[in-house]
Design a protein around this nucleic acid. Structure first.
Length: 258
DNA sequence: ATGACGGTGTGGCACCGA
């Protein structure tokens, strides 16, 4: 079975690309971020026709997340429990698989703009709250996958210019400590369980031919809990959609579980 | 580099993203 994450930067614009991608990659679960639309604008029918149920936490203009699944998602939770947030950034749900149930936590992590800014403070508080809530979620749901747009490079391998961008946004020690703190809860970066091509990224700026020059970051991640770790068969980034016309600046990441 | 590119809103540009 396969679970994927994709920041699609407006589902209104990218719905045809999502449908094309699902037709070519019939994953069991697809987690989307940056829907940039309200719940009433969500294209439920088109996705149902493609064979997917949807759990949606939308927001107009900014943010918005959804879990698409072949079987209906259960026990849906929106945003971080215990953290009041105006922004729609997290949706969690239980999905039934042949091998058992999996708790899927889909996050559009805060960008943070720049260290020292108010938005960076919000990012730090958001990450701390996420960790505290996830500790409880893991206790209740041992088979858990945390995935989405983390807006954090886990280490220097995840950046096209780790020296030049040191301690800038997505590269700060504080952000990476938060990433490591999530790992310490008993989560593993599925991508790094395997040998991967050097300079593997999941996001490239629209400007300055960044994709063509492979000036990117790996900021979209899939973390699996300890009980799921022995089941992970592969984890890959699908760069191809970045070549589409009007592409998202992010591409899908896919994990395969036995 | 206060830049670039792209999405959204009720706009004639500003704001946000990463």
């Amino acid at each position: 079975m396969k679970i994927a994450t994709w920041n699609i930067n407006s589902l209104t614009v990218r719905l045809p690309q999502v449908l094309d991608w699902l037709a070519a990659h019939p994953v069991d679960v697809l987690c989307l971020q940056e829907l940039k639309l309200s719940d009433d604008k969500f294209p439920m029918a088109a996705l149902e026709a493609a064979g997917y149920h949807s759990a949606v936490f939308g927001q107009k203009t900014y943010n918005g997340v959804a879990i698409l699944s072949r079987t209906p998602a259960r026990n849906v939770v929106k945003n971080i429990v215990g953290f009041t947030d105006e922004q729609s950034r997290v949706i969690a749900a239980t999905v039934d698989m042949p091998t058992g149930e999996i708790r899927v936590v889909n996050g559009y992590f805060v960008n943070g703009q720049s260290p020292g800014s108010e938005k960076f403070d919000y990012k730090m508080k958001w990450l701390e709250s996420l960790r505290h809530w996830l500790r409880d979620e893991l206790a209740q749901h041992p088979n858990l996958v945390l995935l989405g747009d983390f807006n954090i490079t886990a280490d220097d391998r995840d950046s096209f210019d780790p020296e030049g961008l040191r301690e800038t946004i997505h590269h700060t020690s504080e952000e990476r400590l938060h990433f490591q703190a999530l790992v310490k809860l008993g989560l593993t970066d599925a991508f790094r369980m395997f040998d991967q091509p050097e300079k593997s990224y999941s996001w490239w700026d629209y400007r300055e031919f960044a994709f063509r020059r492979n000036r990117g970051l790996r900021i979209d991640h899939i973390l699996v809990s300890d009980p799921l770790k022995p089941l992970v068969r592969s984890c890959v980034i699908d760069k191809l959609p970045r070549k589409n016309e009007r592409p998202s600046d992010h591409v899908p990441v896919v994990v395969e579980l036995a």
